[in-house]
Design a protein around this nucleic acid. Structure first.
Lengths: 125, 125
DNA sequence: TCCTTTGTTCGATGTTCGTGAAACATCGAA
DNA sequence: TTCGATGTTTCACGAACATCGAACAAAGGA
């Protein structure tokens, strides 16, 4: 997956509001953001969503391009983390408001973690 | 414009986060929201955007369907107002965060008011 | 009654989006 | 080097979207 090397991670000042809003207009992507909202870095592999591998990859790309998440590659695996601080710096209060609304509405509840290592805190030992 | 009679104005609890986010993922619609953010009711006719009449009508419909604005008809004219309280009730803090971000980025600056009665405060006397 | 004003709705068109299957690229292990 | 695991990219497709011009509908005025 050569892509991660090309991974575009916009700086806070390169993020655009409309791109972020568009990224958050899909339930699956909102679900992914909710999943990552605890600040924990998650392995790509533990993410579970009712879509194919390629579609999930697409959604993660949209989130990354918008600046919502950061993807890190380690060996053959990828890890995703929410860019809370950067988002706060650029769009103060937006993420919190979205997360609160998403929780109250339970948006993207179809998205979850693999039952086994559901707590995968990051890179394996 | 018989349409206003069919106008769908969702209750706060009928609004969905993803629909609101989608509505705010277009610069012109964000511009319209910014224009209405002072709480003033504006006449359809004073709204200026670099799109055709039908496209503007479409954008206003998207905003209305998402619950962001309320449209009122008076005689042959229409008036639009931002539903700040309802949005606050349903998505606490979201609108404020979006408006702040939109201002700092100057999203939708192409949207404006007619030069003449730019301050049309509502129904004409 | 006829005409003007004001928006809405109806095609039509080109673009973007969400989706999956399949091919591909990269890394680590055998 | 060969193989398996892990994601990414390409391709294709239907649906949704942004856009416009034209037709339409409702309310007021001449």
């Amino acid at each position: 997956m050569v892509v991660v090397r090309d991974a575009r991670h916009p700086d806070p000042d390169e993020m655009t509001l409309t791109e972020v809003m568009a990224a958050l207009s899909d339930p699956i992507r909102v679900g992914l953001v909710r999943l990552l909202s605890d600040g924990q870095e998650r392995g790509w592999g533990v993410l579970r969503a009712p879509v194919s591998k390629s579609t999930l990859s697409h959604h993660l790309r949209v989130l990354r391009d918008a600046g919502l998440t950061r993807t890190r590659q380690e060996g053959t695996r990828c890890y995703v983390v929410l860019r809370r601080e950067d988002l706060q710096a650029r769009f103060s209060g937006l993420l919190e408001a979205v997360l609160a609304a998403a929780d109250s509405e339970d948006v993207g509840s179809q998205v979850g973690l693999a039952l086994d290592d559901a707590a995968t805190p990051g890179p394996p030992n």
